[in-house]
Every structure is written in structure tokens, then in C-alpha cells.
Design a protein around this nucleic acid. Structure first.
Lengths: 232, 232
DNA sequence: CTGCCGGCGTTCCTATAGGATTTGAGCCAT
DNA sequence: ATGGCTCAAATCCTATAGGAACGCCGGCAG
């Protein structure tokens, strides 16, 4: 490969234990989240290989993993395409799924919270409050990242590998919708308050209240998004 | 390759719209479920390629997909291994996850049930009742298959792609535990009655009762398994 | 006897080549 | 002008080859 930077990870960190397919996976994930790969666009294996200066084999492996996340869809002998934009029904289903998983995560996380986990959660909410959110699209990223991190941390603190895996499959879709749903950040103040309410319940050590606050948050997110994006 | 037989799969089904990696995926899945690949065993890419008479590339792609299901684990530059047997804690976590997802599926499935779906559910319970379960291990298979099919159908009838995906990631693990958990079929009569209770609630069109019956079923499964397998 | 070390096989990992398939454009007949 | 057909480019899919790392085993020095 002409660009030495990708191989630097292997050469510079012989203990890295990371292979090319992992880098390709992360690169594609980033492009998917950035919008560089728009929904519906074809993802050519050979094309991506040329773009990333690798052979098609690692690209194929990375795409096989991505398919399982729902970010890309595969049609045999036709190739991969970026998953289409969410319809209103898709969004409703996603929120329904969140409502059945995230409150459980919140309840369990509250019961099993570690001091470090609580600190991380506090930091996530703090980042939400301080993140810039007025300017261009790129500035949303830190806000959205903190949002996703908050929910991800709760799922992790629930200390259940299966619930964590289940949430992670949703998390990517949620993040993708946040970016491509067509709605900007119009509800930051309310969303921050709802996150704070969940955090307060966690600090107070009240699992049931934490679950209830999470239900409240997700339902309000759904309500706001459905109102903001009446497009169909 | 010298032996032309492997290409027969392609030549014989020109309309199959299925590629080699899909066949490899299904073959590996079957071997994992059969016990031919025991937990903890190494899954060599080259070895599987020789065994299946294909090149390593499709095997690599199939394993990349399987990794996301939790059936196999990958260590970079070291290869794939069959996921280890469930510990008591793993099983408890799995049941906890089921308790947060399957009752929701049952409630939604009851509300959105189609006539065809209901027929399929009835058939699954009927198969549970008539399946042989006294003899050898191989005879369990039809019973276990009907069990898994019952839960899978409910998840499908919930008409929520995300909940279905979430359940499917659990379903494989559940099935794997049924086979390798160390417990035989000692609770068929009770389990069938519990399935019947869920089905009756569905027939009666009572979503809340269907959810409650599902909770009852999963909790009792957990109770019986934890009592039967005190190994630690 | 014990610990170190160097060769050797196995395996993973990536690149490259070639066959098979789909898609789109261009041409011809109606 | 339009519908159908042919051809060619692009793409997917699989096979094969080669480089690099890991684990094992026998030999040798202390």
C-alpha cells in the first residue's frame, strides 16, 4: 500500500493484536456515521478496497460483520448497500424495542452500579451540557456521542452480556437515526433534563425510579421525533 | 481443487441465489448445534476449508458472521474457538435477558397475531406434545426444535424487526444451552403445559395474560434448570 | 536435572488472478 | 419511435500463493 499510515498500526504496535479487517471495519463504521456513505448507496467491495488501499478480502470480512449490525444489507451476487433511511414505522419499532430493553438496563444498572460507572455517567451528562450544539453539523457530533455514551454506559453497568449485546445492536441504529432522521437538535434542554433525572435516580439508588425515568425519556424522545418529522 | 464435487452445489442449483459462504455458515451452525464442534474447541479456518472442500475465504466470511452471534469467539492472529460452555452466571444472565424481551414479544404478538401465525403456533405446541423424547440424544432434536420454533414464531409475530433481531441473538444461545447445558429433558410435561398456557392466552386474545404466562414460563425454566444443574 | 534456544510445522492473514454473473448501453428489427 | 437483443464493462465470488507469527519439540549449556 502506498500510504504507510495504516500499516503503522501493525509495525509500530506489534502487541496491538489488531488486523486489517478491524481497521476497515472502523473506517466503514465512521464513514457510515459521517454520512460519507449515504443511505441506499452501493458499497462496492472492490471500490472500498481501492479507496482504503487494501485487498478486497479484509473489506469482505468487515462488511460481513457490519451486515449483522443492520447498517448495511447484502443481496447475494449483487453486493452490499447502505441500509435505507428509517421510515416512520421503522422508527416506531425502534422506540418500542428501546422501551422494552433500556428501562430494564436502567433498573439493573442502578442496582449494580460501581463508583467508576457512576462517575462515567456523571461525566457523560456533563459532556451533554457543555457540548456545543449551535453550529454546524460537525459540532453535533460531540453532543450525539455523549448521548449515545450515556445509554451505552447504562447498558454496560447492567452487567448482563446479553442485554448489552441486545442494546448494542440497537445503539448503532439509534445513532444512525440521530444523524439521518432529518431532525436537528431542537430538544437539547429537555433531553438533558431527562438524562439528568435518570442520573439522579441512579445517584439516589432507586432502581424503580431509574427505570421509570428511562421510560419517560424514551417516550418523550419518541413524541418529539414523531412531532418534528411528520414526513412520511 | 481436484475434486469437482463441491461445485455440484453451485451447478445443481443455478437459481439458488445462495453463495458458498451461506452454505458454509449453515454447515458450521449445524455442527455447532450437533455437538460435532464441542465448546472450547479450536475452529481452524484452513481445517474447516479442507473439511468442507472449499477455499478458506468463504469460511472466513462465515466465521465473521458467526462471531456476532456469540457462537464462536475470535482472537486476532490466533483464530476462532467455539464459545465455552455456559457458567451458572451466564445462564442467569441469559434468563434475565429473556425475561426482559420475551414477555414483550408475547404481548405484542398477541395483539398483532395473524391467523396463519396462530396456526403455526398451534402446530409448534402440537409438535412439542407428539415429539419423541424418551430415547437417544438425537431424538431430542425434534422436541428442542419445536421449542425454539415456538419462541421464534412469537418473536416474529411481534412484528418488530428490532425485537426479532434481539431475540434471534438470544435464540441461538438458548438452543445451545438446551443442548450443552448438561440437563436432559426432565420437564417436558410441565414445559408443554406452560407453552399451552401461553398459547391459550393468545387464542383468547389477552395480551397481558400472554405476557404473564411467558414470564411464568421463563421463570420456571430458570428454576428447573438451576435446580437440575447445581454443577458449578 | 533444569532452563534456554533454535528449527520446523501449522495457522492466520493478505494479495492477486481468474471464472461467473449482473447491469447498462448501443444497435437492429418491427 | 419502441421493444428486444447483443455485447462489454463492472462487480461479485472463489481459488491459490506467499509472507509473518505462533506453538511445539528436540538439543545443548549450566
Amino acid at each position: 500500500m502506498a500510504d504507510p499510515s495504516p500499516s503503522a498500526a501493525r509495525a509500530g504496535f506489534p502487541v496491538s493484536r489488531q488486523v486489517l479487517a478491524d481497521h476497515v471495519y472502523e473506517a466503514l463504521l465512521e464513514w457510515l456515521m459521517d454520512g460519507r456513505l449515504e443511505p441506499g448507496a452501493a458499497v462496492s467491495i472492490d471500490g472500498m478496497a481501492r479507496e482504503l488501499d487494501v485487498s478486497p478480502t479484509p473489506v469482505r470480512e468487515a462488511l460481513a460483520r457490519l451486515e449483522h449490525t443492520g447498517m448495511v444489507r447484502r443481496v447475494a451476487l449483487k453486493g452490499y448497500r447502505v441500509a435505507p433511511v428509517f421510515t416512520r414505522e421503522d422508527f416506531a419499532e425502534l422506540m418500542e424495542a428501546r422501551l422494552s430493553i433500556e428501562p430494564v438496563n436502567a433498573r439493573l444498572a442502578c442496582s449494580r452500579m460501581t463508583p467508576d460507572g457512576l462517575d462515567a455517567l456523571k461525566q457523560a451528562v456533563e459532556d451533554l451540557k457543555t457540548a456545543p450544539r449551535g453550529g454546524s453539523f460537525a459540532e453535533y457530533r460531540s453532543y450525539l456521542e455523549a448521548d449515545e455514551r450515556f445509554h451505552q454506559l447504562i447498558a454496560a453497568q447492567a452487567s448482563n452480556q446479553f442485554l448489552l449485546a441486545a442494546y448494542n445492536t440497537l445503539g448503532g441504529q439509534i445513532q444512525r437515526f440521530r444523524l439521518f432522521g432529518g431532525v436537528g437538535i431542537t430538544d437539547a434542554e429537555q433531553a438533558i433534563a431527562e438524562h439528568q433525572a435518570v442520573l439522579d435516580a441512579m445517584i439516589g439508588g432507586d432502581p424503580e425510579k431509574a427505570a421509570a425515568m428511562m421510560v419517560d425519556h424514551v417516550e418523550k424522545v419518541r413524541g418529539r421525533a414523531m412531532a418534528d418529522a411528520p414526513e412520511d
